[in-house]
């Protein structure tokens, strides 16, 4: 039932889920994934959740809900994937491209004159993916952002002022 609510939520927000690190593009990924759940089982942070049948053809595939538990890019999931739906050769966390974080400047505290460095300080690609403009305003460098969602998790604003959009949503 909880997963059903999540699904309805995803319709309302129009958000497609994040895939674990090293995932192929959505279409390819759905064809390749054999739903063995190994990535979800090996994930030490329980970040990777498994989609239930309400997700339609994505049933059984791994997903990450960054606001609940983001990916901490430990890269344990990619080697266990038997089909290469999660590409086994992505071992460096810098090469991961799960999505790209976008800052909502209307909600983000520094843009509202409140000092906050939560996302900047927690970013695993420290000082590269999120930089501070004028030592104050956070800015995402799209080329460096890996889309792990840690920034989305730590953002103190309700509903998060920084949201990671999956690769699919960015290209649309």
């Amino acid at each position: 039932m909880i997963s059903l609510l999540k699904f309805l939520q995803s319709i309302i927000t129009g958000k497609t889920p994040l895939r674990p690190p090293g995932a192929l593009r959505e279409e390819e990924f759905l064809k390749r994934c054999i739903k063995c759940n190994k990535c979800a089982q090996i994930c030490p942070y329980f970040s990777i959740r498994i989609a239930h049948v309400e997700w339609g053809r994505s049933m059984g595939t791994p997903m990450i809900f960054a606001r609940d538990i983001p990916c901490y890019v430990c890269m344990k999931c990619t080697p266990v994937c038997p089909t290469g739906a999660l590409q086994n050769d992505v071992v460096e966390k810098e090469n991961v491209r799960m999505g790209i974080a976008k800052i909502n400047e209307e909600k983000c505290l520094p843009y509202l004159d409140v000092i906050c460095r939560a996302c900047f300080e927690n970013c695993p690609i420290f000082r590269e993916a999120i930089i501070l403009v004028d030592e104050l305003l956070p800015k995402v460098i799209d080329e460096k952002c890996i889309g792990c969602g840690i920034c989305e998790r730590v953002c103190p604003v309700e509903g998060s002022a920084i949201i990671v959009y999956s690769k699919e949503e960015i290209t649309v």
């Binding site: 039932m1 329980f46 498994i50 049948v53 049933m59």
Partner: peptide
């Protein structure tokens, strides 16, 4: 496949999914 993955979901704290209905 469905039964085994549902057992694993349940034990890992993700709850049962509607695919058990199948």
């Amino acid at each position: 496949g469905i039964i085994s993955s549902e057992i694993s979901h349940f034990i890992m704290g993700m709850g049962f999914g509607l695919e058990l209905l199948i």
